[in-house]
Amino acid sequence: MRIRDHAHLSDEALVALVARSDEGALAELYDRVGGIAYGLAYRVLRDEALAEDAVQEAFLGLWRAAATFIPERAKASTWILTLVHRRAVDLVRREERRRSEPLDEAPEGATGSAEDNAWLHLERERVQGALRLLPDQQREALELAYYGGFTQSELAERLGQPLGTIKSRMFSGLARLRELLDDSAERGSWTTTSS
């Protein structure tokens, strides 16, 4: 069976096709999520080859294990980004590549960024806008953890705070960010893909 036009399928339908070794579905998923995934991996790893490794492994993991994906628990794109992030963080820790200043701006837009479509651009602005509304300490904890690849214990040491404080900053920050994103999704003039 050959699906000739994958563009109209949901991410989850594509994953189901990937589970049946449909290459076109894998290509379509890459086209939808690959740019974001690479941008994320690069932000964490600051190295093109390692970022490519992280993305490649995640998509290969998807190719091999798509049959085990249970769509009701998460969106397919979230699943892929989770795989990529996990891999990037594992790599950055192993390579000890984390910069002392992990919040240096990534070279965004230098070579044309991943946001070559309007929705991605808006989504990025929406999330960055929500991040800016967080209390500084919560934002700092989220950014150092997620983009910097630091563990909670490393953060506690780095910021000179008790572990419990770091945990609660991350929890409160993520919970608050969720609220802000929900609000902006309701208010916003663009639609998200969340279903």
């Binding site: 941008g39 969106k75 044309g112 989504e123 990025r124 929500a130 960010l177």
Partner: peptide, 29 residues
């Protein structure tokens, strides 16, 4: 929470991947 961290991924803002990455992944698959 994974949905929220997935949103953070969108705000990462790294550069675009080399076109060769797509071909490499598909070839490997």
């Amino acid at each position: 929470f994974w949905t929220v961290s997935g949103a953070l991924a969108h705000a990462a803002g790294g550069p675009a991947p080399a076109p060769a990455l797509r071909e490499r992944i598909l070839a490997q698959a």
